[in-house]
Nucleic acid binder design. Structure first.
Lengths: 340, 340
DNA sequence: GGCTAGCACTCTACGTCCTCGAGTGCTAAA
DNA sequence: TTTAGCACTCGAGGACGTAGAGTGCTAGCC
């Protein structure tokens, strides 16, 4: 951004910092007063006019102060972000939440803590990648023809789903079948569970060919396609934000966040270089989200993404703070999940 | 209610019916015009003054029409409700939603359909009573010391939770233990699973005394205390209602509905004579719910409550319609759940 | 050339005032 | 007991004026 000299950047930064806190347009007087810039309001005004020209600021109306545009937030997060120190009580609180709890509730708790610390909506999900390794499979009889399929992966996650068979099956047979399949696919990678390999591996495991087919189908579908559980917490927090005091603005956002696939979309995992992902306003694909910013952090176990946590709030947010918070949370989660 | 003569009742009914649709105060003119009562606005005015005196109506301000009070809705649902006919396309839609779907998703789907048909928030939960019978228990190894406990009950529901053991346990041992416990407690009623009986029944099942203790503890806690999963759908619908256009009114309600225990509280099952339960405004225990009405319907499998579905909306709602809808939904659910 | 004091200008927020209309309660007559 | 008539009340909404915030421009200063 060569178009922004040092002073312009400094002014822009001050405006963003102030606006994020007050949600009110910022005037030249305020900028010049705060953090003694050494220049008068008049000079600031000139610079602000320039920044507006360049698309970083806009005026709600002629005699109001200025407000940062999405472009401003973008350059802010890309090049004006310092290391933000996270208060130790927040760190402590988060770690307390994650560690003293049943492992299967860790992610949910993370989202919960995140929502209450940030006052935004928090979302979280575990990721199932093709790299996931199956550790154990168990078929549990529900009715003579219906079984619950429980798969344990090396990410400590399990998924329960039910399957229906064409013919009744005896509990003992089911048990044997269960062990047999488990023994054969245990240790396999999820993305190796193609129809072909599955057939080859377990195709002749039992007389119950149709049972096996069914289980194979379920494994493929449920372990490779369906993402794990998705949590969202504190959606109502969005109503606390000044920009969503108008219900007609808030309603579409809340409706969208109630749809699982929307949240899943938001939570697409990043790569290791790209752990924290920031999407500002119209950068969101979803029309409903165009007045929101979404920040997500992916956490890794070993070198594989294990899950994603994030927040959804108005574009006006304390990016620095939220980013370090999410970053810390992701690290803590990796630790909590990684040592089951 | 001897204090209400026929004409007062009729007028009250008209006002409620109109108000529910328009959300605007109803004047004497409108009442007299609609459904030709045979009396002039002046007469209606006198009656309305009487109804206000008795606490059934109130005026937002001097020169506005009248609005029903909670007391009015109460007498309306208690004694003025006719049989409401449910359009057959709605019936069809609901049944289609419930039947063609994986059994474990039935209840969730029910809530979803309910929310989209009524435009209110829908809540649902399965009920676990002491009367539930355990059918099967399975311990699935997660790590050497951690197991997943899966319990299958005769309600077709299963609950997954994890337990940690003091000492590592071999998969084969675990399997034997699992079968042994399952064999011994299979068929028992949940409320017979007291510490004493559990000890007696499975106490000597294995050398792994601490394992057994742990499993017993989990069974007691998780099957008798924790209610099953709780679903809520379409909470954002509340923002569509005119009475919640003010965010400060809507926020507390939405926040409350995000708390699991609040929803659980709303969904306490009714008895068989009392399947549909209507709670109007301040009748709700929760302060946050005092501007809402909650209608729930309990569905039964055999003679035991199996679950509860309900809606949360403003006190101004089409009680007749919602009640017959819920009633039908509960019947359909009973049918869908009862024949697994 | 860059900075700034001064100033006229613009626009919103807000309070006041007014009118209109809806709906009421009361009274007197049918 | 009902109803027509009427005076009354009150909120919604528009017109108007003012105060204040913030701007852009210009002329002078370093």
């Amino acid at each position: 951004m060569p178009e922004l000299d040092t002073r312009k950047r400094e002014i822009l930064r001050i405006i963003i910092d102030d606006y994020v806190l007050t949600a009110e347009p910022i005037g030249s007087e305020a900028v010049s007063a705060r953090h003694r810039l050494g220049v008068s309001p008049a000079t600031v005004r000139n610079e602000m006019a320039g920044l507006e020209e360049l698309g970083y600021l806009r005026q709600p109306h002629t005699s109001a102060g200025r407000v940062p545009t999405e472009q401003a937030y973008r350059v802010y997060v890309d090049s004006m972000l310092g290391e933000e120190h996270l208060p130790s009580w927040e760190r402590a609180r988060i770690r307390r939440t994650l560690f003293g709890v049943q492992p299967e509730r860790t992610v949910e708790q993370a989202a919960h803590a995140l929502a209450s610390v940030t006052n935004f909506a928090a979302v979280a999900a575990s990721v199932t990648t093709g790299e996931t390794r199956i550790r154990h499979l168990q078929l549990v009889p529900l009715t003579p023809r219906r079984v619950l399929v429980v798969a344990v992966t090396d990410e400590g996650v399990f998924e329960g789903t039910t399957a229906e068979f064409a013919t009744p099956i005896q509990p003992d047979d089911l048990d044997r079948l269960s062990h047999e399949i488990s023994r054969r696919i245990g240790g396999m990678l999820l993305h190796d569970l193609t129809p072909r390999t599955l057939d080859a591996v377990i195709g002749d495991a039992a007389r119950h060919q149709r049972v096996v087919d069914e289980v194979a189908r379920l494994l493929r579908e449920h372990l490779t396609q369906t993402p794990g559980p998705v949590y969202s917490e504190g959606k109502a927090n969005i109503l606390k934000q000044p920009e969503f005091q108008d219900v007609r603005r808030a309603q579409p956002v809340l409706s969208a966040l109630e749809q699982r696939d929307v949240v899943v979309e938001l939570l697409r995992p990043g790569s290791e270089e790209d752990r924290v992902r920031i999407t500002i306003g119209r950068e969101n694909k979803r029309e409903e989200m165009k007045e929101c910013s979404v920040i997500t952090a992916t956490y890794f176990v070993g070198d594989r993404p294990a899950g994603v946590v994030g927040i959804v709030g108005p574009t006006r947010m304390q990016y620095g703070k939220v980013i370090s918070l999410l970053s810390f949370l992701a690290d803590s989660l990796a630790e909590a999940i990684g040592q089951p």
